[in-house]
Design a protein around this nucleic acid. Structure first.
Length: 275
DNA sequence: AAAATTTGACCGCA
DNA sequence: TGCGGTCAAATTTT
């Protein structure tokens, strides 16, 4: 079948993709700066606010889609490699039992690690951030007093949002949380409930804090809600523009570090979640 | 009953 | 091989 614009060779495609992503990130950064200007205006026209949000949302979505598409082939080849390995080890009863259960019985353990995802590390005395999170695991970490809790976006199944976060109490200050945001929010849950899932629930201290937060949800100031929205925007690829984080997030959250953005590689999304 | 959390099993990576 | 991350059945909460 003839196409008016045939696809370029893979090498060209790859290099073009890099440039496309770079340009998109540039656009995203400009939009972010524009957002800061608009929000700093005492009385920004609502239309302008909405427009900026739309633009940023659009950039975030596009970059996320590109990132996911970029990993698709890799994911497939990894799966094939895993399958081959399992098939080779049929003489081991344990291995064959595992591979059988993996392919026939259930999908437990059939997942792909997220690699090259954007990460943002923050330290805060609160774990809520305006997003609704669902806890999916907890682990005791070697040489750590406190367990690490794993959360994914509640809208993962509804909207395929791939954002996850890890929460762990600080070693030296148990009132503070070390929160690692991994991946980007592709959902539109910025106005969702201030759901505060419990972490390391056996701790009575934490439970008290959760209850306290649950009973005082009304202390959300304009700045807080702005922080919420900013955080959604910052979930986008290439949020190393410190402008936004410095201006808003640090009202409650201390930004410790922003890891370098890996343009070529975004999220490796677990496709089993769509099954 | 549905949604959320807990928890032990399992997997990938260093 | 051990550790950390994820899955999903079981359990708890709403």
């Amino acid at each position: 079948m003839d196409t008016l614009y045939p696809w370029p060779e893979p090498e060209t495609l790859s290099s073009n993709k890099k440039r496309v992503i770079q340009k998109l990130v540039e656009g995203q950064q400009c939009a972010t700066e524009l957002q800061v200007i608009v929000l700093h205006n005492n009385k920004p026209p609502q239309q302008a606010e909405e427009l900026v949000q739309k633009i940023l949302w659009s950039f975030n979505q596009t970059l996320s889609m590109l990132a996911e598409a970029g990993h698709h082939d890799e994911v497939i080849s990894q799966n094939q490699a895993t399958c081959n390995d399992d098939c080779k080890s049929q003489d081991s009863s344990e291995s064959s039992k595992r591979s059988l259960s993996a392919f026939v019985k259930d999908k437990r353990g059939c997942y792909k690690r997220k690699r090259f995802a954007q990460t943002k590390i923050v330290v805060s005395d609160k774990i809520e951030d305006g997003h609704a999170w669902r806890k999916y695991g907890q682990k005791n970490i070697l040489h750590s007093k406190h367990p690490r809790s794993y959360f994914r976006c509640s809208l993962k199944h509804d909207q395929g949002c791939s954002a996850i976060k890890q929460v762990q109490r600080m070693e030296d200050d148990a009132q503070m949380y070390h929160i690692t945001y991994i991946g980007t929010h592709t959902c539109r849950d910025q106005y969702s409930s201030m759901a505060t899932p419990r972490i390391d629930s056996p701790s009575p201290i934490l439970k008290l804090e959760s209850e306290e937060q649950a009973t005082t949800p009304s202390n959300v100031t304009d700045l807080d809600s702005m922080t919420m929205w900013t955080d959604v925007m910052m979930g986008g690829v290439g949020f190393e523009t410190d402008v936004v984080s410095n201006m808003y997030s640090c009202t409650e959250i201390t930004c410790l570090d922003l890891e370098p953005v890996e343009l070529e590689n975004g999220l490796l999304f677990d496709d089993t979640d769509f099954a």
